[in-house]
Every structure is written in structure tokens, then in C-alpha cells.
């Protein structure tokens, strides 16, 4: 990532574009929630949009798109453990013994 004034100005344009996309996606997610597409479909769509928005924030605002390797490794470890954590409700509800 360049640090000259020109580079920064270029970055700022990107940031504003990402910002506009984020606003648009917020509108979309609210709009979609009023359309009934079946319970599961609504949940999936809302989460997909949220993930896209979060990825945009992480990639551009948090500069993850051009970050150092060490940060990627750190986040990779966190991601693995996060998956472990998300495994927890599954562990709870998979074939429980009913007494």
C-alpha cells in the first residue's frame, strides 16, 4: 500500500465507494426482510448480505486486502477456533439421549 498523498487520495475514493455499497446493502437487507421467501431463505439471505457487508468493511476499511502475512496467520488461527466455537450448538443438539 503506497503512502504518498496521491495514493491516499485514490484510497479515499475507494472508501467512499465501499461506503455507498454498504448503505445500499443495508437498504436491501431491510427491504428483503419484508418479503416472505420462506423462513430458511430469509435467514440465509440476511446472513449472506451481512457477511458481504462485513467482508467489505474488513477488506477495505480495515485494509485486510493488503495486510501482512502475519496478520492473516493470526486471523486464520482465530477463524479455526471460531469454527470450533460454532460447533458448540451442534454438539448440543446432535442425537441427544432422551431420558
Amino acid at each position: 500500500m503506497g503512502d504518498s498523498v496521491e495514493d491516499i487520495k485514490k484510497h479515499v475514493r475507494t472508501y467512499v465507494m465501499v461506503f455507498v455499497v454498504l448503505l445500499f446493502l443495508t437498504g436491501v437487507t431491510v427491504g428483503i426482510s419484508y418479503v416472505d421467501m420462506g423462513h430458511t431463505m430469509n435467514i440465509v439471505l440476511a446472513l449472506v448480505i451481512a457477511t458481504i457487508k462485513a467482508s467489505l468493511v474488513a477488506a477495505y476499511f480495515m485494509h485486510l486486502i493488503s495486510e501482512k502475512k502475519l496478520i492473516y496467520y493470526t486471523l486464520l488461527i482465530a477463524a479455526l477456533f471460531f469454527i470450533g466455537l460454532m460447533f458448540l450448538p451442534t454438539g448440543q443438539s446432535l442425537d441427544p439421549i432422551h431420558l
Binding site: 454438539g91 446432535l94 439421549i97
Partner: peptide
């Protein structure tokens, strides 16, 4: 270190968890 995160439920065998888990 990695494995220590995916063994936690061996403290919970008494809670009636299923055979798969």
C-alpha cells in the same frame, strides 16, 4: 495448542450427549 480446543466435551460425558458427538 490446536487440539486443546476440540476436546472440551470430554468433561461432559455425563450430560447425556449422543454417541456421535
Amino acid at each position: 495448542g490446536f487440539m486443546s480446543f476440540i476436546v472440551w466435551a470430554h468433561h461432559m460425558f455425563l450430560t447425556g450427549m449422543g454417541t456421535t458427538i
